[in-house]
Design a protein around this nucleic acid. Sequence first.
DNA 1: AGACAGGGGAGTG
DNA 2: CACTCCCCTGTC
Length: 268
Amino acid sequence: MQKIKATNFNLKHTIECGNFFRYFEKSNWYYVCSADKVFKVQQRGDYIYFDGASKEFISHFFRLDEDYSKVIAVLNKDKALKKAITKYFGLRIIRQEPFECLVSYICSQNSNIPRITKNLNHIAELFGRKVVFDGTVFYTFPSLKDFDDAKKMKMCNLGYRYGYICRLLKDLDVGLLYSLKLKNYSDAKKYLVGLHGVGPKVADCVLLFSLGFDEAFPVDVWIKRLVESLYFGGKKLTEKKVHEFGSKRFGRYAGYANQFLFHSGRLE
DNA sequence: AGACAGGGGAGTG
DNA sequence: CACTCCCCTGTC
């Protein structure tokens, strides 16, 4: 087992904030599956203890390498956010693997967290690699080339998202997906929205959670309701207006603002 | 039992 | 833009 210093960090908020799906808790540990990795992690004070992954990976995954206080200093200027931040201080946006993240958020539409998790675990069991870790069986998330017979996915109860995922497996260029990191926000988003089954919300999620675009502001029904009630006195807005508002008001940290709002709203 | 909504998006008009 | 429908699951 190894440990790493993690100040201004809250593991529980970070893992459970609803944007990451493949984990579970067992005897004070979080067991985490992300792409081809399986590891466990727990927090004690200002340290994270972990096993199954390298120190570099853990630091990168949980974004321990970034200046969190700077983000908070900016967002604290907003009254509603300040309240959410006191409650969920230490929440960070995990750096997910882009392909798994894309599949996850295509599956997420018109669904809910328990079902999404079930879908993803099912896909992993069918196409991923079996790993025994700490005496427990896990399945890694498959990469694109591992989907030998996509029809097997019918078993995963994806509903109408099944068709989207099958199309994705045919159309997607993973190299191109990874290279979106190097493009600017609007070009990267344009590419993602061009994929069948990917709209503005899913695109923003992928950009924010896996491609390093902190300015992305995913607008789902929750964020829409929250923005309408907190900033517009309950007036109804279109998704587009909500997105414009978030981008303008929170700028390069819109993604973090989004997560604090979402997390505080979801648990109220 | 049966209706209904649940972290969207495609396809129309 | 606004509207309907898409599949499936859990909930009331």
